[in-house]
């Protein structure tokens, strides 16, 4: 494996490393106001925004890394750390709060032994508290994002949430 974790200007390596992002950069690098779009697409491809990725975007677009970092940390959507295979987005909207989303969070934390923002050791799950998912009538709600798409689960209880997670675990370990 090439040693490309450095912060020097070895752009040729990075270009190879981030070749999947190239079409996005070709399209948007020089369109003003496209930084957020580029970061969103980069995160879609790689799952998170690494330091290398930010430096690469900086080199191609000419936007300073500090500014990219500033934008990436401003918005809730961007992550600077890799996430698990299944991203649990637990709704913390008002309706979910009133209907006991804290109890659901405790149940998930208990079952997977992770807190908000953390990833399980086996890399299967990351737990993220999010603002409203907009399914307020089904509160409490969570959305689980994986390569298979987004799945929303409503009317959660302590037991149902554990069952959902256990089913995913079983499926993953069975394959």
């Amino acid at each position: 494996m090439k040693n490309n974790l450095c912060n020097c200007n070895c752009t040729s390596d990075r270009k190879e490393q981030f070749k999947d992002l190239q079409p996005v950069l070709d399209q948007y690098a020089h369109v003003p106001g496209s930084l957020i779009t580029i970061l969103q697409k980069a995160q879609d491809i790689y799952g998170y925004l690494s330091v290398d990725c930010i430096n690469h975007i900086s080199e191609v677009t000419g936007i300073k890394p500090a500014k990219i970092y500033g934008v990436a940390t401003f918005y809730a959507q961007f992550r600077l750390q890799p996430v698990g295979k299944h991203l649990i987005m637990l709704c913390q909207g008002t309706a979910c709060h009133v209907n006991g989303s804290e109890i659901i969070e405790e149940a998930i934390s208990d079952f997977l032994n992770i807190k908000d923002g953390e990833t399980t050791e086996d890399g299967l799950f990351t737990l993220n508290n999010v603002a409203c998912l907009g399914c307020c009538s089904l509160a409490p709600v969570m959305m689980i994002r994986s390569s298979e798409g987004d799945e929303t689960y409503g009317n959660l209880t302590k037991d149902s949430v554990k069952q959902i997670l256990a089913d995913i675990q079983k499926r993953e370990k069975g394959v």
Binding site: P32, G33, S34, L35, I36, T37, L39, Q40, G70, V71, F74, Y75, A76, Q77, F78, V130, A131
Partner: peptide, 25 residues
């Protein structure tokens, strides 16, 4: 369509415009 990136303050007009321009909202 421009997809927002998750910031409540972007509901404010001038913050929304900053975000559209690719800046911090």
């Amino acid at each position: 369509i421009k997809a927002g990136a998750g910031a409540f303050v972007c509901g404010e007009e001038t913050a929304l415009i900053a975000s559209l321009e690719g800046e911090r909202g």
